[in-house]
Nucleic acid binder design. Sequence first.
DNA 1: GTCAGTGCAAACCCTTTGCAGAAAG
DNA 2: CTTTCTGCAAAGGGTTTGCACTGAC
Lengths: 140, 140
Amino acid sequence: MRPENQQYREQIVERLKAAGVTPTQQRVEIAAILFARDQHMSADQVLAVVNTASPRVSKATVYNTLGLFAEKGLVREVIVDPAKVFYDSNTSNHHHFYHADTGHLTDIDPAAIQIQALPSLPEGTIAEGVDVIIRIRDVD
Amino acid sequence: MRPENQQYREQIVERLKAAGVTPTQQRVEIAAILFARDQHMSADQVLAVVNTASPRVSKATVYNTLGLFAEKGLVREVIVDPAKVFYDSNTSNHHHFYHADTGHLTDIDPAAIQIQALPSLPEGTIAEGVDVIIRIRDVD
DNA sequence: GTCAGTGCAAACCCTTTGCAGAAAG
DNA sequence: CTTTCTGCAAAGGGTTTGCACTGAC
């Protein structure tokens, strides 16, 4: 199911509508890339990929769109690198390895990690999400 | 044990030396603030606090020093906010609540959370650290 | 036709860097 | 004295914003 596939693009349009997002050309373009498979991309990477195809999408729109998708739950923001945000097209419950040397993110099998006894939250607050990041590096 | 206390500052000097860090005036100044208690501070906050006292420390030195302290294991970097890094003066094993509305970090009792079965790492890598962040917000 | 979305470029903010002068040992 | 550190200001890099134009419905 390639991003340029017509049928695939129609699925994307439906998915955006379902999330309450107006499916503009640019948003479909970006979504088609992100949703092609489970992956972690920075805004920069999305911008680079989207602009290998036409129509072109501006940097501002890529940032706006990724922010919108995150807000609507279509992607998940992953904050592991002080320099940039990653957007994860896999929104199901899972955690990450972060390879410090390469800056690469990898999913951790959700079954392999479990939080035991979620601690009681500060009064008047609710949990929005739990992020587990295992920072790894190459052996010497 | 106030940061301006002479005896306290001597302890700081020893602690820096033990970590292999030359105890310059500015570094001791910064360390005295950070190590006064377990806390989470951004570079900006450190800069603001250090400059309420004399001698003044420049922005460049604050950044350099915090980076150096992190590298030497004197503080721990906490990456939860894409906009800035927090430095945690508590280097023991523990995790964090991150209050999205206020940008405030709180420690989680280490006993309250446990990772079950650390997953097998990608080949040729070793774990450098495990970060658990529970993102919370105020109830509506 | 109306309102939301897009593009461009400039602005922003945290962080890093280059280099000359100052401090540590 | 030599080497490391500090301060200043400028540069850097990801992200956001203001505003006029374009597209969606």
